[in-house]
Design a protein around this nucleic acid. Structure first.
Lengths: 203, 203
DNA sequence: GGCAGTTTTGTCCATTCGGTCAAGATTTTA
DNA sequence: TAAAATCTTGACCGAATGGACAAAACTGCC
C-alpha cells in the first residue's frame, strides 16, 4: 500500500524524510544513476519500508518534479507590469539567485531533467512554462516600447537571467574550484549581477 | 587486450565509432545512468567487441573527458591582452556560443560531470582551469584599470559568459520548448549576446 | 492487558549491469 | 594460399538493481 495523502504523524514524517533524501540523491546523480538503496539509506530506513510509502522509484521522482515546477515558476509570476521596470527585473534576478543559494538541489534536479531531454516535463514546458514566459516577455516588450529599459530580446533576456543565476547552483563545484575556498561566490554574484543588469537595462 | 594508440585501419575506425557513440550516450544520461549495451548498440557493435578496444566503461569516459577539457579551454586561451578589449571579449563570447551550437554533446557531458561534483575533474579544475581563469581575469582587470571597459568582477564576468552561452546547449530542450519550433535559438542568441555584452562592457 | 491497525524489515526474485572467456570469423602477411 | 595476427561475438559470471511478500514489531485504543 502507498499513500496519496499522508495522514498519521509517522506518515507525514516519513514522507518528508523520503522526499528530502530523494532530492539529495536525485539532484546529485540524476534519475537513472540514483538507486533506491541510496535513497533509503539517506532517509534512514530500509528499502522495503520506503516502498511502503511510495509505489516506485519513478513515483518519488515525479512527486519531486511536480512540486518543483510550481516553485520554480513562482518568482517569474511576481514580475509586476505596473511596477518600475528596473526594480521588477532586478528583483526577479535577486529572487532567482536566492533560489540558487537556498535550493541548489532543486536547481540541479531540474537541470538533470532538462539535460536528459525533459522526458517527464516536456509537455509542461511547452504549455505552462511557454505561456508564462510569453506573457512576461510581452510585459518586457511593452517596457521597451515605452523606452523604460534598453531594447533587448525579451525571451533571451529571460534565458540570460535563468542561466546566470542557476549557474551558481548547478556549477557550484566549478565556481568554488575557480574562486578558491575563501571567496563567497553568492555574495559576489549578487553584486556582480546587480551591476550587470544595471548596465544592461539602462537606456 | 586494449589499445593505448590505435594503429590499424579497423582500430582507428572503431575507436572513433566508440568514442562518438559514448559521447552521444554519456552526454544525454551522464556516466552512471549510461550502459555499455547502449553505447555498443549506438556504435554498431557487440559489447564484448567494444571491450576489446577499451578496458572499461570508465576508461571510455575518462578518454572523452581528457580530450574535452583541452578543447573547452582553448577559446579562453585565445583572449589576447594586446588586442582591443571589446573585440577580444566579444570574440570569446561568439567562440563559446559557436561551441555550444557545434558541440552541444560535449557541453552536456561537461555539465553532467560538474553537476555530479566533478569526481574525475576536480583536481584539473582547481589547478589548470583556475590558473587559466586567474590569468585572464588579470588581463580583464588591467583593461578595467585602464578604463577600457566597464568595472565588473572579472571572474564573475567569465562565469556569466560561460553560463549564458552554454545554456543554449545544456538547456536546448527548454529553450526550444519556450521559443517554439519556428525560431532559430542560436541565431537569435548571437544577436542578443552581442547586444548584452556591448551594453555591459561599455564604459 | 489485549486486540486491530499500522509500520518495519529479512528474505527473496527476475532483470540488468559491467566485464570475462574461449571459440570462431576475418583480415593481413609472407 | 596458408599461416599468423587481428577482429568479433555467443555464452556466461558475480554483483547490483527495482521491487514483492509475508512475518514480525510497534502503535493507539478499549
Amino acid at each position: 500500500m502507498s499513500f496519496q495523502e499522508p495522514r498519521t504523524r509517522i506518515q507525514i514524517k516519513n514522507h518528508r524524510a523520503i522526499l528530502d533524501a530523494a532530492l539529495e540523491v536525485f539532484s546529485q546523480l540524476g534519475f537513472g544513476a540514483a538507486t533506491l538503496d541510496q535513497i533509503a539509506k539517506q532517509a534512514g530506513m530500509s528499502k522495503p519500508n520506503l516502498l511502503y510509502y511510495f509505489p516506485s522509484k519513478e513515483a518519488i521522482y515525479l512527486r519531486l518534479l511536480s512540486e518543483l515546477l510550481e516553485t520554480w515558476l513562482d518568482p517569474l509570476k511576481e514580475i509586476d507590469p505596473a511596477g518600475d521596470p528596473h526594480d521588477e527585473i532586478r528583483k526577479y534576478v535577486r529572487g532567482k539567485l536566492s533560489m540558487s543559494r537556498e535550493y541548489p538541489r532543486e536547481s540541479r534536479l531540474f537541470a538533470h531533467e532538462i539535460m536528459q531531454g525533459a522526458p517527464h516535463l516536456l509537455e509542461k514546458l511547452q504549455s505552462d512554462l511557454r505561456q508564462m514566459v510569453d506573457e512576461k516577455a510581452a510585459v518586457i516588450d511593452a517596457w521597451i516600447a515605452q523606452g523604460k529599459i534598453a531594447p533587448l530580446d525579451a525571451h533571451h533576456l529571460i534565458f540570460s537571467i535563468w542561466s546566470m543565476t542557476q549557474h551558481y547552483a548547478d556549477f557550484a563545484v566549478q565556481v568554488s574550484a575557480v574562486l578558491g575556498p575563501d571567496r563567497d561566490a553568492f555574495a559576489e554574484a549578487e553584486a556582480h549581477l546587480d551591476a550587470v543588469f544595471g548596465r544592461m537595462l539602462r537606456v
